[in-house]
């Protein structure tokens, strides 16, 4: 079953829409709340990344009985050094974004921690694609 959500760059009020939508679906599917939490936390981080860094983005979700696959793709500046971005505490966030409580450099590491598998590909000046896969049954 597939779902798709739009993400608007710069609009923090709507960051979390996809996470809330996916959460509602997983609750209806009787997924263990602990598993739901990991998925939602990872997706929320991903959404905030798109809002903070990109112009616009899209979240594509595919669910079957074994796993959830989430693809977060954006049109944005891209990540020049993915290994560096994966480091805890590294951040490119502007002062304004940090003031809003974001930009602690925990985004990607937190996503990695809360997903079974993570794939990141990026082209500088074009955008980034983050793919998260997590098993639905423990």
């Amino acid at each position: 079953m597939e779902f798709s959500y739009e993400v608007e760059g710069g609009n923090f009020a709507k960051a979390g829409n996809a996470a809330s939508g996916v959460k509602k679906v997983l609750k209806q599917l009787n997924v263990d709340p602990k598993v739901i939490k990991r998925i939602v936390v990872a997706l929320y981080e991903g959404e905030v990344n798109v809002v903070a860094h990109a112009y616009k983005g899209k979240v594509l979700v595919d669910i079957d009985t074994s796993r959830i696959y989430i693809r977060i793709e954006d049109e944005g500046p891209g990540i020049p050094d993915i290994d560096l971005a994966m480091q805890v505490g590294y951040s490119t966030a502007s002062a304004m974004v940090r003031e809003m409580g974001f930009g602690a450099g925990m985004g990607l590491p937190n996503m990695k921690r809360n997903a079974d598998a993570i794939e990141i590909s990026s082209k500088v000046g074009e955008g980034t694609v983050v793919e998260l896969t997590t098993k639905l049954t423990s």
Partner: peptide, 11 residues
């Protein structure tokens, strides 16, 4: 909120 206890049926 659960549609069915069995995830396959819920899906």
């Amino acid at each position: 909120m659960v549609l069915d206890e069995d995830m396959g049926i819920a899906l």
